[in-house]
Design a binder for these strands. Structure first.
Lengths: 193, 193
DNA sequence: CCTACCGATCGGTAGG
DNA sequence: CCTACCGATCGGTAGG
């Protein structure tokens, strides 16, 4: 594999991320993708195997980033409040640094075929369990209120996974800044107490 | 228009809501829809004008429900904290009572064509402004913390609009119960203070 | 990376 | 509500 085809392959993946996010996977044709790159649709298949392979690459790459970043920030931290805060900022960092790909991860995974679909759901459930464990830890140590763990986990992820719907990297807030503010919001709420 | 075709039309709209939610608008064919009902695809067009008309009906019906329910609960309330709480519970009630349709409203609106697309965005922006006004009111009266209004509004809607991803009506919590708990979560946060 | 092409499927219409 | 059908477009392959 030459350097030229490697670069072209990266370009295909990047443009696919953007189109899948903007129009949705099903509404994006391979001809749309080829046109955005400037080649013929048939030429795409010199670099990739199928349309679904593009979706798989996006979904599992982001899944890996979530796990890697989580492990990185949890390493050595024991304080429940800080552990939760680090998990939130790690997740936010991955989302804010991969807006196209994370949007596809959140919204287009249902178009995966088996066995990828089952594997995807499994990894997502494993990741969610990590956040549930953090919430449980915080409640048992009295740091968090007596919330229902599964319910709180869903609300936390709703907040975090909604980031691509409004965050613009050219805006006033950097990824680290929104990560801090989202953590504050989840921990403190809106009330002035 | 006979009673039979009216019922059939309602049935088409209801099944379309469900399929558009489960598979996405673009990935749902008119043949899928017809098959789920038990008629031929061509027969759908005795009751509806086009596939997009189905999407328009869903999106604008839900938009109207959001406005109507908001107006209903705000009527007469002046306390900032209560006004916000009522807005959250009203929104949650509409979502939890229309899980299929509200999912389509949140995720499939981009498939609307002009001029519906512009009209949809306008109505959504108007609705969001109402929540921003409530947040601003709460901050100015010292009830809420000094959060950035636009940012807080986005986080609130992320939480509320994520409901269809996890809420199951056959679960332990009723729509009114989750509405209360979500309002608590948004106001109080996670910390045990 | 292209031209040429494949069978399948799409939203929708004509006519009854 | 059906049969029969339309032109357009889909993901992908053969062969160079």
């Amino acid at each position: 594999m030459t350097i030229e085809t490697l670069n072209r392959k990266d370009q295909i993946n990047q443009v696919a991320q953007n189109l899948f996010r903007e129009r949705g996977y099903a509404a994006t044709s391979m001809r749309d993708l080829a046109k955005a790159i400037g080649i013929e649709a048939a030429s795409l298949y010199s670099h990739i195997k199928s349309k679904e392979e593009l979706l798989q690459n996006i979904c599992f790459r982001i899944a890996n980033e979530f796990f890697d970043e989580y492990d990185r920030v949890q390493n050595g931290t024991t304080d429940p409040k800080l552990r939760f805060r680090h998990a939130v900022t790690a997740h936010t960092r991955v989302v804010a640094s991969n807006l196209d790909a994370s949007s596809v991860f959140f919204n287009e995974w249902r178009h995966l075929n088996e066995p990828s679909l089952t594997e995807f759901k499994k990894q997502r459930a494993d990741y969610e369990e990590r956040f549930k464990a953090l919430l449980k830890e915080g409640i048992e140590t009295g740091v968090f209120r007596q919330v229902q763990v599964s319910f709180a986990m869903r609300l936390v992820f709703s907040t975090l996974n909604g980031i691509p719907t409004w965050y613009r990297p050219d805006g006033a807030l950097s990824p680290d800044q929104i990560a801090e503010q989202i953590a504050d919001f989840l921990l403190e709420g809106l009330l002035n107490k």
